[in-house]
Structure formats: C-alpha cells, structure tokens
Amino acid sequence: MNGLARLAATPLGKAVGITRDYVSRLYYVVDEVPRGQRLRLTPVLLAVEYLVYRVDSLAERNTEVDLDAERTSDYEAFHTYKRAFEKVLRRVGAWNEDVAFLVDEAERFIRLENATTSRGTLTRGDFLALVELRPTDVRLLRAMTFALRGRPMPPETRDLLWPVEVLADIANDLRHYEQDVALGTLNVYAAFVRLYGDTAAAELRREVDRYESMFLERLSALPAERRARVAEVCRRRYEAAVRPYPRTITAPPAPAPPPPPGGTRPRGRVAVGAVLTAASLAAAAYGLRRFRPSHPTPALRTPRGHLA
C-alpha cells in the first residue's frame, strides 16, 4: 500500500474523503452555501467527522462484544465522547435541536450495529435499519452547517436528501463488497447474499428502486430551475447502487492478513484524536462567530423511510 492509500485508510483520510464528497460536492451545492462561508465552515466540519471516525473505531474493535451486556471500558468511552462532543459543538455555536437529535441517532446506530454484530441474529429489517441510520454522521455535518449559519434546515431538502444518503451508503458497500467480505466487515450486499443467495442482487435492487423512487418523487417538488443540478449531484453520490452489482462471493474468503505491528487502535490514539479534534474546533471557532445562531432550529423529526 502506497503512502496516499495508507493515509486514505486512516480516520483522518476517511474524514477528508467524506467531507469532500458529501459536504463540498453535495450539501454546499444543494444548499447554495456562499463560497466565503464554505471556507469558514469546512475546517469545523472536517474536525467533527474526524472525531466520528475515532468513535467508530470503538465499535469496530467491539464487533464481538455486546457492550450493553458486558459494560467494558469502551462502553463508558461512548458516553465520554458524547459529552465532550456536545460541549465542543456548543462552544463553537454548532449545536441546536437538529444537531442534538442526530447525535442521539449516531449513538443509536453505534449501539444497534454493536448489538447486531455481537449477537449475530440479523434479518433483512435489521440490515435496512442499519443502512438507514449509517449516514447519520453526514446528516450531522449538514445540520451543523445550518446551526453555524444561524438558519433553519429546510424540511423539503432534508427529506429530499434522506434517501440519497441511504443510496450512497448502499453504493459504498457495493464498491467495497469484495474487500468487506475478505475482512469480515458489515456489508449490506454481503448480508443479502447470505439471506437470499442467488437472488440477492434482485432483492437488494428492490430496495434501491424504492429509495430512488422516494428521491425522484421529492425532487419533483423543487423549483424547476434547480432540479437538473440537484439531480446531477445527488445521482453522482449513489451511482454505483444503480449499476450492475458485483459477482457474488459464495466460497469462504481467505483469511485477511494480520495487521502490521502498531496497526491496531491503541487506547492512547483514541484519546489523542479527541484532543486534536477539540483543538481544531477551538481554533476554527474564532472565524465562525459570525455564524452563531440567533434562534434555535425547529426539532428534526424521525427520518422518512419505511422498511419493506
């Protein structure tokens, strides 16, 4: 693995990729954020996404441990992160009811993912629930942009983007299907293969078609002059979900090679990540004070999606 690929696989590299693909190339375009504001918003959003990936590392190393049942030190770490997260976001003016709702949704996803992977009893509904909750981190970034700008989040574009975010998550699993199978990572297509065998692609395509129909129906409510541009940037995010699916892997994969020395996530790195994030947010706060909200945004409602 070369240096750039190795960097892209780190929490920082992943955070940069997510911020670029979702914030810069999707949310800023759909929400028509002025360029000057983008320069001030992006460092804070990048720092938050980095912290999200550090928290996610706790879930990754506990896939076989039911944290609610065993109450390990990582169980307490989730609560510690959440309290620190809220404190920092309040300090920089990036906290409102929408953000608070999504922070709770992020914790719900982490606990649901841990419960399902540690207990091993997964149904179609379980996987779809995970897929619908998994984009919570990017939804959180979008909610923060409105909090920092002191604006309410328009419900029509929030509803419009909800299925796009789900489709983009499915597309990501399809792109990484073989890699995830080899590593034993949770992957919705691999899950459908286990549940449905040779008909997995058709079953997953049914769900993709349902989410895309939801998006297209909501897109029609936008002003005509905006539809083409919004459709373009949204479809770009989920394009892999509507292309031909990968060939299914039926034979057990060869064991993944062990991580190199120092490749695991020692507890100290998690602490350093939290400190770096807090410092980054504090440094960015100075230039963002003008965006402090003067009034709270209306509460975010439960996501609009229904399992089949």
Rank of each mutant, 00 (worst) to 15 (best):
Y286N: 10
A274H: 13
D31Y: 03
F215V: 08
G273S: 06
L26I: 09
S57Y: 08
N114M: 07
Y238V: 05
R206F: 05
R134V: 15
G262M: 11
L300E: 04
P253W: 00
Y53M: 14
Y75H: 07
A256C: 05
Y177P: 03
V233G: 02
V99K: 02
V44I: 12
E165L: 15
G263E: 15
K87C: 08
V188P: 02
T248N: 07
F127A: 08
W95I: 08
T42Y: 12
T157V: 13
A182M: 11
G17V: 09
V23P: 00
L288H: 09
T80V: 11
A231V: 02
R301P: 02
P11K: 00
P252R: 12
A190Q: 08
P296Q: 01
A200V: 04
E32V: 06
V188M: 02
S73Y: 09
E60K: 10
S118W: 07
Y75D: 07
T302M: 12
A231F: 07
A94C: 03
A251D: 13
E207I: 14
L51K: 03
A279T: 04
A254P: 12
P244M: 04
D98A: 08
A5I: 15
R35H: 10
S24N: 14
Q37H: 12
R237P: 04
T117K: 12
E132I: 08
A221M: 07
S24I: 10
S73G: 14
E132A: 12
D159W: 11
V99E: 00
L222V: 05
Y50T: 09
D21F: 14
T185G: 06
L7T: 09
P296C: 02
S213V: 06
T72F: 07
I249K: 06
V99S: 00
F215W: 10
A47D: 10
V166Q: 02
E232G: 09
T116R: 12
P303L: 03
E32A: 09
F146A: 03
N172Y: 11
T185L: 10
W162P: 00
A201T: 00
P259Q: 00
A106H: 13
L45W: 04
F192C: 04
G184W: 03
G262I: 07
R134Q: 11
V65A: 07
G120F: 06
H176M: 14
T19S: 12
L45R: 00
L183H: 15
R205P: 00
P253E: 04
N187K: 01
V164C: 01
H306E: 05
L183I: 04
E97Y: 08
P293W: 00
M214N: 13
I18T: 13
A59D: 12
E113A: 05
D137I: 12
L122V: 10
I170W: 03
L4S: 04
V181W: 01
W95C: 00
E32F: 07
V233Q: 01
M144G: 03
G263R: 05
L133V: 01
V88A: 10
E97R: 05
N172K: 13
D21Q: 15
R35F: 12
R267F: 15
G36N: 10
E232Y: 03
E165A: 06
V275P: 02
E113I: 00
